[in-house]
Simulated scan of single mutants.
Amino acid sequence: MTHPFDVAMALDSMDGLMRGQTTPDFANMVGPFGGVTAAAIVRAIENHPDRLGDPVSLTVNYAAPIADGDFVVDLRAARTNRTNQHWIAELSQSTDVKTTATAVFGLRRPTWSDTEPRPPAVPAPEDCASQDNSSFVTWMRNYEMRFVEGAMPGADTGENPDSTTTVWVRPQPHRALDYAALTALCDVFYPRVFLRRGQFIPAGTISFTAYFHADADDLARQGDDYVLATARAQRFSGGFFDQSAQVWGRDGTLLAVTHQIVYFKG
């Protein structure tokens, strides 16, 4: 049986375009889960015959809600250098542009390396309770989430002085990690304003950026194990807030860092 994520990532090349379709398994409050839209753009570039290397960075701008049904990803390699390649992408429906994106792919080389931050000191995922958020939005059914801090607020939670969420998470059913799946995991957090205000209010990501530190060996070591994802906001103001996040392997490898800007009401 095909994994629900792979169904969502199914793309056909036709007339120089990548054609896909939204799936009900990844429905969000409005349109599909933004993480799976970003992942589809990564997969579209990975499938392009001119692609060089693996994802290094991705910025996705969610210009308008994506309707249920077919979509087209139009790709252009703006420049190809010896070790990196710059892409421009547009996702549209019936010629109406819904999402724009830029991406850098590249060839990784052996160099000096170091990781300055350290992963949060947390219990093992097996020692953390699983929270079922499937009644909130459909796409969350595809992830097993074991919160260390900052779980989804309930009706009587009340306001919180801190916006940090740290959670062990992996696809459900389990699935080996690849770049598309890592992209989606980078956007797995519910809006930070929910935690601060202790209630659900209208909110949606406008722009999402991911920087990929994982190479192929890192992904292979990860397998289908949990990743540790931690996120926080810096400021809420004028109807917008930011979010910065890190995604770590269980072995302490920093797999990706992400930043986004989110619209909210209230």
Rank of each mutant, 00 (worst) to 15 (best):
D127P: 05
R109L: 07
G154W: 00
S163H: 04
V97T: 04
S130W: 10
K98F: 00
P110W: 12
M152A: 07
P161A: 02
V167S: 01
L107S: 15
Q131L: 09
T102Y: 04
V167G: 00
V169R: 08
V97G: 03
S135A: 11
P153M: 02
A121I: 14
A89M: 07
C128V: 13
R141Q: 06
S94C: 14
S130R: 15
R109F: 02
W139I: 12
N133Y: 04
T165P: 05
T95I: 05
T166S: 11
R118N: 15
T115C: 08
A121E: 14
N160K: 15
A129F: 02
S92K: 10
V167N: 03
E149R: 14
D156A: 15
S135Q: 07
T99S: 06
C128I: 09
P120Y: 15
T115S: 08
T138P: 01
F105S: 04
R109V: 11
G106E: 04
T157I: 12
T138H: 00
N142T: 05
A89D: 01
G150R: 07
G106A: 12
T102R: 08
E159W: 09
A129T: 12
D127L: 08
T99N: 05
D96E: 12
F105V: 05
P153Q: 03
V167A: 04
Q93S: 08
T138M: 03
F147N: 03
E90W: 01
R141G: 03
E144G: 02
E90H: 09
G158M: 11
S92H: 08
T100A: 14
A103M: 07
N160R: 15
G158C: 14
V97K: 01
S94K: 14
W139P: 09
P161G: 01
P125H: 11
S92Q: 11
R109D: 04
T165Y: 04
N142W: 01
W168N: 00
T138G: 06
C128G: 08
G158V: 09
E116Q: 15
D127G: 09
E90Q: 12
P161T: 03
P125K: 09
S135T: 13
D114H: 13
T115P: 00
S92F: 01
P123M: 10
N133C: 07
A129N: 12
S163G: 10
S94Q: 15
T100K: 07
S135L: 08
A101H: 02
V169Y: 13
S94N: 15
T95R: 14
A89C: 05
V104S: 02
G150N: 06
V104Q: 02
